[in-house]
Structure formats: structure tokens, C-alpha cells
């Protein structure tokens, strides 16, 4: 059930990238997609249990720390790429205030 929602998020993001006309919206759609991917990692981590993997004396069903640690890297990378793209969009918006991809593309392809 949860898995279906996660995949729906990823697909919504993916189709958002294709269907949205505005460059800004495309970037946000990409963020939605990456949120879906991150959620999937968290979901995979919680297959074995939900508890925070910090040892506290008693043994409970811990969540797998590896996917969580790994996705942290991916979050940071995704965030920096997002920031980089937004800077690019800021620069582009000076000459293309509507930020419509088709317009930008028309002006900038030889």
C-alpha cells in the first residue's frame, strides 16, 4: 500500500517534468520525484522494524540504518543540484521572464 503511494509520487514527479511548461515547475516536479525516491529508501529501511537504530540496552526491531545513511548522501547531492539549477533559472529569467521551456529552447538552439 505504502509502496504504491511512493511509486505514485515518483510517477507524478516524472510526468510533471514532461507535462509542465514552466521551467520552474519542471524543477519542482523533479524535486517531487526525488522525494518519492527518498521515501522509497526510507520504506526499504523500515522493512525490518521502525525503531531508530541507536542501541539502548534492550533489543527491539531496528530500522536498517544503511539505506537511511545512503539516502542522506543522495539528499545532499539532490539539494545541491536543485540549488545549482535555480541559479541557472535566475540567470535565464532575465531574458526569458516567462520561463517557458519551449521559448527558452527556441531562443537558445542554433
Amino acid at each position: 500500500m505504502l509502496e504504491a503511494f511512493v511509486f505514485a509520487t515518483i510517477l507524478f514527479g516524472f510526468f510533471g517534468i514532461i507535462l509542465k511548461k514552466n521551467l520552474m515547475m519542471k524543477i519542482i516536479a523533479m524535486d517531487v520525484m526525488s522525494t518519492g525516491v527518498i521515501a522509497y529508501y526510507v520504506l526499504v529501511a523500515s522493512r525490518g522494524g521502525f525503531f531508530t537504530p541507536i542501541f539502548s540496552g534492550e533489543t527491539v526491531a531496528y530500522a536498517d540504518p544503511v539505506p537511511q545513511a545512503v539516502i542522506l548522501t543522495a539528499i545532499v547531492i539532490g539539494f545541491s543540484i536543485q540549488a545549482l539549477m535555480l541559479v541557472g533559472v535566475m540567470k535565464l529569467s532575465r531574458d526569458n521572464p516567462t520561463l517557458e521551456t519551449s521559448e527558452i529552447e527556441k531562443n537558445n538552439t542554433p
Binding site: 521551467l23 543540484i81 545549482l84 539549477m85 541557472g88 533559472v89 540567470k91 535565464l92 531574458d95 526569458n96 527558452i104 529552447e105 531562443n107 537558445n108
Partner: peptide, 11 residues
């Protein structure tokens, strides 16, 4: 502008 767009598209 063109180089930024080409780069953005790649990224």
C-alpha cells in the same frame, strides 16, 4: 544564456 540552457538541460 545559451551555455546556461545547454548545461541546465544536461543536468
Amino acid at each position: 544564456d545559451r551555455s546556461i540552457w545547454v548545461g541546465l538541460r544536461y543536468l
